[in-house]
Design a protein around this nucleic acid. Structure first.
Lengths: 210, 210
DNA sequence: GGCCATACTAAACAACCGTTTTAAATGTTG
DNA sequence: CAACATTTAAAACGGTTGTTTAGTATGGCC
């Protein structure tokens, strides 16, 4: 078993288990046994549990923000007008695509993003902000440009409303979908849900202040 | 020290600490020492940590859903037309009021609600659904009536979008407010934020499907 | 005062946690 | 093949967790 094998087996198991139960609720022993590696391997390869958590986020946020930057570059270079709906579509499409092509589950990362906000892990928030703050600010800036005349404070509150609706809904996607399927017999796919989310989120961002 | 004293001191401490750090990250020893009671008191009065968590939720959800029911009754009895904005205002006003009058912090309960969704505590979700599911369904039903012609599946997805925006934003209210205050020097109160949230959430619910 | 149920306390319990240590195995390079 | 650095392995470390036990105090009632 080569090093990269052990490392990625740990990351794979940690990713799934963290998304399922959270960080504190997942022990290194659970991770290493489901990964089929020795307990001490985590501390050997990652140093500590904190650094393992950060590595899990790094592995999906780096390709994601990279793909988003490329997509935004492409649109800007092509001179396409950047509308609110267009930007949201880019965000969601890249989020789905950059993960799906690795055969990984988009909902899982939404759950992880939700945990990063909710859980009591100061180091994680600091890590994400310092590492990916620029990507966030660029997207937010373009979105603000697509909403001229909106005062900045209102814009940022609505940006958080939008993030909340997105992260919260998609991180519970499987549970919500199961409820709706049971109550209405109508099953909906993740792309369909995103097609519902784009106009709804756009309407929230664009509504005239009372 | 009377029984109710010890019980409510434990609940007070647990409420604050749970909201701050989550359930697993808060030990019974931390709770009991900040409450100034003996460690064994939790198991004596509540049975287990799980039941303490449920008791914390019961103490604020029961008055909240009660006040919401009364408010909805009042509006229905008065023959007031129930608009989307009106229902959201009722929801938020009751949420603020029923807690503020007890001198408790509304954001704290939003954080707890957010945790109930995010954290890996199956018993909690089951407890809340079985205990307060009726209140939820009544509010959702009235909101659906205020949105005639909207197909049910789309309505429910948007309801979750709205819940996500609300819970997510308000549970991180203090952090978001601090960021905006630093970047724009404009400080906003919780009522002001809810005034921004009502039209934004209403617009999301009401937007014509593409 | 004597009795009894309720409430509290101190101490110990077994189980689990993240991490470290020490040693064995493996792979790489001269 | 020998020497070396890297990786894996088993075992133990000290510390913390939720819970239980056994004993003490407290307050009301006959």
């Amino acid at each position: 078993m080569s090093q990269t094998d052990t490392v990625s087996r740990i990351l794979d198991a940690a990713e799934v288990l963290f998304a399922e139960r959270g960080f504190t609720e997942t022990s290194l022993r659970t991770i290493t046994t489901t990964a089929g590696v020795n307990l001490a391997a985590v501390n050997y390869h990652f140093g500590s549990k904190k650094e393992l958590i950060q590595a899990v986020f790094e592995r999906f946020l780096t390709p994601f923000t990279g793909a988003l930057a490329a997509e935004l570059d492409r649109r800007v270079a092509a001179g396409e007008p950047l509308t609110v709906e267009g930007l949201l579509e880019s965000l969601y499409r890249v989020g789905m695509g950059s993960l799906a092509e690795q055969g990984r589950d988009p909902q899982r990362f939404m759950r992880l993003l939700g945990l990063a906000y909710t859980q009591y892990q100061g180091h994680l928030r600091r890590f994400i902000v310092s590492r990916y703050g620029d990507s966030y600010r660029r997207f937010a800036g373009l979105l603000a440009q697509a909403l001229p005349g909106l005062d900045p404070v209102t814009f940022y509150w609505r940006l958080y409303f939008m993030l909340g609706a997105t992260i919260f809904t998609l991180s519970s996607y499987d549970a919500i979908e199961a409820i709706l399927r049971e109550d209405f017999g109508a099953q909906s796919s993740l792309p369909e849900t995103l097609e519902r989310l784009v106009p709804a989120a756009a309407a929230m961002l664009k509504v005239d202040s009372q």
